[in-house]
Amino acid sequence: MTITNVIAHLGSWGLGKIFGLGRMGVFLLQAVSGLWKPPGKFLAIVKHIYFIGHRSLFVICFTGAFSGMVLGLQGYYTLSKFGSEGLLGAAVALSLIRELGPVLSALMVTGRAGSAICAEIGIMRIEEQIDALRCMAIDPHGYLVTPRFIAGFVCFPLLTSIFDVIGILGGYAIGVMLLGANPGAYWDGIYKSVAWEDVSMGYVKSLVFALLTIWICTYKGYYAGVDSGSMGPEDVSKATTEAVVLSSVSILVADYVITSIML
């Protein structure tokens, strides 16, 4: 391969990426403009809140409890070395509210609901259901994407809150009930150390993660097989894998960026 071929390939790859980013931006704008287009979205939003929120409750409670428990365990042993077990409540609560709650709940929802959203829209694409929507003069973005965005914005902060509360209770169960830390000090530490800024940072993160997850998962599903032109089941599986990986990476990158801005 000559040097000109290498440059041509690199250029083609770069142009492809820029085109993809531009198309993602347009996709988001179309989803926003879909807010004002028929059909009405109330029932669809309720359905997606049930799917993204209610159906994710078990996994959120489960991972929240174990995250809190491991924080309680690790925190107790670390703090007890310095005689600071009284700070256990603050350590568990701040870790959960500022970092682990939003990040882990977003990763869990991406794995459970994001992949399903991408696969569902991808199957609609390869079975010509999205084309059918357009030919019925129904905006596919407004019908398929916009309600999921709204449901995501409702569910992510709520699931994060539940994750935080269950995690704090998990930390209490291990730190106080099992290892013997002072219960009054645990709750007092949380009361004195957690400020509104910590809670708002958690909510800002969960809203940004909702945007990223729903955006990436719906986009990948919507364009499954469009670029390859094959429109087969393998395109849906590829799109789903890409959606989960890209969403997860984006969540971690966005977490760092938001933390560095808001600290």
Binding site: I123, E127, E128, Q129, D131
Partner: peptide, 10 residues
């Protein structure tokens, strides 16, 4: 429009 496989919403 009738698509090849019906394209019904599943």
């Amino acid at each position: 429009v009738l698509f090849q496989n019906g394209a019904l919403f599943s």
